[in-house]
Every structure is written in structure tokens, then in C-alpha cells.
Amino acid sequence: MRSWRDLLWIPTFTVLVVLAVPWPLWGVDRVLAGFPVWIWWHVAWLGLCAALFARFVQSGAWERVMGLDPDARGDL
């Protein structure tokens, strides 16, 4: 069954891709704990991506949208 909640992944992925570049910190030159602060943003963001990617995989949303049975496929 397709669910509208599955489609929420589309804006989620869009935000993940767009803000992997620390646009709000454009021109900021603060150094925090040894690295420019925008590098920390990026490092944290990729960590967030990995976590949400794992979540997406477990949700079975992609299989449902493709018309496949998520339970017939393997989980993580």
C-alpha cells in the first residue's frame, strides 16, 4: 500500500542534499575546536544523512512506491 507518508522522503532528501553545503555559513570564518565551523556543519550533516538513509531503507518506502512488497525483500 502506498502511503502519503512515503512521499515525505522526497522533501527530506531534497533538504539533505541542499544543506549538505553549509549555505547559512557563507562567509563565516569562525574556527571552532580546530576546524572552521562550516566544516563541522558538513561533518555533522553527513552523519545525519547516514542515520536518515538507514531509516529510509528500513521504512520500505521505496519498495512501496515501486509497487513491490517491502516485506518480501531483505531488511538491514
Binding site: 532528501f13 539533505l16 542534499v17 549538505a20 553545503v21 566544516i39 558538513h42 550533516w45 553527513l46 544523512c49
Partner: peptide, 15 residues
């Protein structure tokens, strides 16, 4: 360059 490569490879390519 770290940001460019991290974004394209770590996030966009993954999607």
C-alpha cells in the same frame, strides 16, 4: 573542496 566532494559523493550520489 571537502564540502563539494562530500556533498556530491556522500549525499547526492548516495541518493
Amino acid at each position: 573542496w571537502l564540502i563539494v566532494m562530500g556533498t556530491l559523493d556522500g549525499v547526492l550520489f548516495a541518493v
